[in-house]
Design a protein around this nucleic acid. Structure first.
Lengths: 108, 108
DNA sequence: ATAGTATATAAGCATATGATTATATTGTAT
DNA sequence: ATACAATATAATCATATGCTTATATACTAT
């Protein structure tokens, strides 16, 4: 059962439009929290909490650089998640779907 | 956005341990409701409601035969769901994980 | 028509979830 | 040390979710 329960938990994480959008954005490059805030219509704490969930399930990596925290995909070892994302739009297309441009180099 | 939202909705359906188990059981053959009740630890209405959700999103087909309603997978046109299920256990292995035997030919 | 079996729908409830605002923490720069 | 920017955590809240029990519907058989 553990195998199915573990997969269900991770799929539930993908089953939220905000998180799935974040994962799509992460397909082609890493993003810091403030960039995600700029592009998605959610508060900064909202983003932080989504990232914490994704991180706690090992779906993203976290890298602090200065005052910024960058997140990147970590799905090499999760083939079913990887294959789902292969069918999803990448960074550029996702930005288009959001009617947003690449965020400026640094926030604020 | 529709593409991502639609995928998120469907992935949310997979992100429940009961429903994901049902889909695993459906990998190799169709099942009727009473068989699922026999094998999962959930009430008959509980199963019915899960099946309704899966059906309403086109993930399963429904076929009434006599007083039984049989459900089968319908994921040919949903490649990302298909690929997720490819990484999941099939009917026999799932039954093992549940510590259950194939249900008797007909219920009750 | 009646009884019995299989399934669906309705109603209710406890818990989970995604969001927000307020506040704390961490790091940078002066 | 102070001020500011980026991020995290805490508290709160409204809604969604998964389950149950009770009841309705559909089909079969006598």
């Amino acid at each position: 059962m553990d195998q199915i329960m573990d997969a269900a938990e991770k799929l539930k994480l993908l089953g939220d439009k905000t998180r799935l959008t974040i994962l799509c954005l992460l397909k082609d490059r890493e993003w810091c929290v403030c960039e995600l805030v700029e592009v998605l219509s959610i508060s900064q704490p909202g983003i932080s909490q989504h990232m914490r969930k994704l991180k706690s399930h090992g779906i993203v990596n976290e890298a602090r650089r200065g005052q910024w925290v960058y997140y990147s995909l970590r799905v090499q070892d999760k083939p079913y998640i990887q294959s789902v994302l292969e069918y999803m739009p990448g960074t550029t297309d996702t930005l288009s779907l959001l009617n947003k441009k690449e965020p400026g180099q640094i926030c604020k």
